[in-house]
Simulated assay, not measured.
Amino acid sequence: MQVTDHTRWEQPFPVRFLIVGERDDEDATGVDLLLGRCAAVEGLFADPPPPPREVLVLRGCTPGVTAGWLGSAMIRGRSDAGREHWWELLDAEVLVVGPYSADPALVNLVVSAAIGKVEDFRFAQDPCESFELVSSQDEPLTTCVLVAGLLKSRPGCTSLPVRLIGFEPTEPLRAQLDSGSQRWPAYTELWALDDTGRVMARVPTGLSIDGTSPSVLRGGLLDVDLSVSPGRLPGSAAREVWRQWQPGPPQQPGSWRGLSVAAKEEWQSLALNRRDPEPDRSGGEYHLAGAGVEDETGLHCALGEAINGPGGYYGRESTGFEDCLGGGFGAVPPFTLVWHDFAATERELAEETDLPAGRSYPEFLARAMEYRKVRVVRA
């Protein structure tokens, strides 16, 4: 499907989004199928609601924890067979430290928190014999006999509402809508277009339609209500990144600096999406601006920019970076990378060092490149 064939229509406003499905008939599996186009989307940058707060009672704890805010933490349980189960605590606070009636040497902790991720697989077959409260730095804070209120089902947010505004369905989709059929393509994406008509992002929204109505934009268009899994939406962190990319791929280096980690991750997604296939090239010299990268995600934004220009992609983490060195993303070894302000990069990422022998993440990447025949000049 040629996107440029569908970016213009007889409306007084531009096409901003395409709905594209994957044909599932035997002769066209994997072929893109245009289902419609629209002027705007509401709810695209919504975040799932936070989980509700709960009160847990950690009974029979070793003393040492005082009342006060903990922040992010985790409860980790261990079974007799050595299996571990864990529960993530968000914005946790110890409300009260009280006596444990069964043993005066131990205490009870009343903890308020929202429960985030849970890994309690096969708990019923292999229950925990003891529990441990652990800090966000994986530092054990206390052990306890049991945790009242912990073991229960917690339904998550299953879907969020998204509305397509000013939607023009293609004839195949309109026929299905008119017939009431729900046989949508198994895999459907929302393609966001930038001002040049280029596909800026692909969001796997699916096509679970809750209802349709005449559009507020009129012109024979529809407004279509969808239910979308929260994990498929870009979320609020992506809004500023999309705004920067809306005129087209960025032209100024370092436009990602100062963004949050989540926003820089979205920057990487847009950079990967806009990448055009190009032949591998070896040799040459590239310059990495190493000051002000702030975190590992920023460092990979800087690497992509150094090798493929503003808005360039060359891996979003160490594994992806090594994949890029293998070809298909422009530069392949041997080449030279001049890493300016290498010491500043190490200082900024010092807290993220968690590698063998205490080696910094920048040094880890530099040595990985050197192993792959890239000459790294630490400037």
Rank of each mutant, 00 (worst) to 15 (best):
E119I: 02
Q137K: 12
L95W: 00
Y313T: 05
E189M: 08
E285D: 04
A237P: 03
D80V: 12
D194K: 05
P250N: 04
P49F: 03
V110A: 06
L272R: 13
V107G: 01
D120G: 09
V332C: 11
V94S: 04
R183S: 07
Y313P: 04
I19Q: 04
G258F: 05
G77M: 06
L18M: 01
P140C: 03
D47P: 08
T353H: 06
A368P: 00
R347S: 09
C324F: 10
Y286F: 15
G149I: 01
L193W: 06
A331S: 14
E296I: 15
F121M: 08
A344I: 09
E240Q: 14
S153D: 13
R275S: 14
K373F: 13
F121V: 10
G290P: 09
T212Y: 04
A186W: 07
E278L: 15
R218L: 13
I75R: 00
E266P: 00
G284I: 08
P250G: 04
P104F: 01
G315N: 04
A237L: 10
V94T: 04
R243I: 06
E363N: 02
K152T: 12
A306Y: 10
T319Q: 12
D276A: 14
F342P: 03
W191L: 15
P172M: 05
A368T: 09
E346T: 08
N308E: 11
P127V: 07
S136Y: 09
D280R: 11
A343E: 15
P185S: 02
F342G: 06
D225E: 15
T143Y: 03
L337C: 05
Q137G: 10
A379V: 05
P48F: 10
T143E: 14
P277Q: 03
P48R: 12
E363M: 13
E346K: 10
G68Y: 06
E346N: 13
S260F: 02
Q137F: 04
P48Y: 07
G290E: 01
D276I: 07
R198C: 03
R53G: 15
R281K: 13
S179M: 04
T205A: 07
F13N: 00
R378C: 07
D25Y: 02
G219E: 09
S213V: 11
W242F: 15
R16K: 12
D27Q: 15
L221A: 02
